[in-house]
């Protein structure tokens, strides 16, 4: 499951950032690293961004990026 397909409002754990080194680096710098808990807050229509909450940060990520962030359900 990816950030694009997961449900809003539920906690998930990041298991992989499926992209190049630059992509991974930028996301990790923003606090979105493997093992972190994320909650999707909204998905915007027409290929718009996905907004998420990681710890105390709220982030907006492009559609295609959200697709490359692999999640699993958090217990």
């Amino acid at each position: 499951m990816t950030l694009l397909t997961c449900d809003s409002g539920k906690p998930y754990r990041v298991i992989a950032l499926a992209g190049g080194q630059h992509f991974q680096l930028r996301l990790r710098n923003l606090g979105l690293a493997e093992g972190k808990l994320v909650v999707k807050t909204a998905k915007h229509p027409f290929g718009g961004p996905v907004t998420i909450r990681v710890e105390q940060t709220e982030l907006a990520l492009g559609h295609g990026m959200a697709e490359r962030i692999v999640l699993e359900e958090a217990q």
Partner: peptide, 10 residues
């Protein structure tokens, strides 16, 4: 066109 990555401040 790079995709949006933006921190949304409180």
């Amino acid at each position: 066109l790079p995709e949006l990555i933006l921190e949304i401040p409180p």
